[in-house]
């Protein structure tokens, strides 16, 4: 079974835990995927266009941005490799939702592991709109089954009507 694990910088433990639960499936091949989101750069380029400036392509600022993006992505992959040392690593750049489904097709994933959204210290979000735009797109467009790793949110239950 080929499992593609999508890392967003905040879900390493969740993804590792889920992958370990599948470790009895033989042969199990895991790939850890992290995507450098090109969205913010595109927005910055649009803002530059508004101020009659060409897109940021070369120069110290671009180098710094690339260094920071790459360093953080590599750190995320390294942290996940600590739990899943046999895994392959994939680092891509672009719109995360597109990169994930394309990577899944190219790598011939049997299943994609993805979390509903990146969580930055807030309590797990359940209910409407709890699935972010990236996970939603992957659910809609994936070339294989998708396992949505919802956070543990038992303390928010029972849901009252």
């Amino acid at each position: 079974m080929r499992v593609l694990c999508c890392l967003d910088g905040t879900n390493t433990q969740q993804v590792s835990h889920a992958a370990q639960m599948f470790s009895t499936a033989e042969p199990l091949t895991i790939a850890l995927l992290t995507v450098i989101d090109a969205g913010p750069r595109r927005d910055m380029d649009r803002t530059r266009e508004r101020f009659w400036r060409p897109p940021l392509r070369h120069g110290p600022l671009t180098d710094e941005m690339q260094d920071a993006e790459r360093a953080v992505s590599e750190e995320v992959l390294k942290a996940a490799l600590g739990d899943l040392p046999q895994a392959e690593t994939l680092l891509r750049q672009g719109l995360p939702e597109l990169e994930i489904v394309n990577a899944a097709a190219e790598w011939r994933a049997d299943v994609i592991f993805i979390c509903p959204r990146a969580e930055y210290g807030e309590p797990p979000h359940i209910g409407p709109r709890s699935v972010g735009h990236v996970a939603r797109f992957v659910l809609d467009h994936a070339p294989c089954p998708v396992l949505l790793l919802r956070p543990l949110a038992g303390e928010q239950f029972p849901i009252r009507r």
């Binding site: 989101d37 101020f51 400036r53 940021l56 600022l61 941005m65 920071a68 993006e69 953080v72």
Partner: peptide, 26 residues
Amino acid sequence: DATALILTPVVYVLVTRLRLPVLPYL
């Protein structure tokens, strides 16, 4: 001009390094 064109990428690098969500700061 300076805030939109120069400070924005500088802040982007900073919050990326600090592992914070990028969009609110941008």
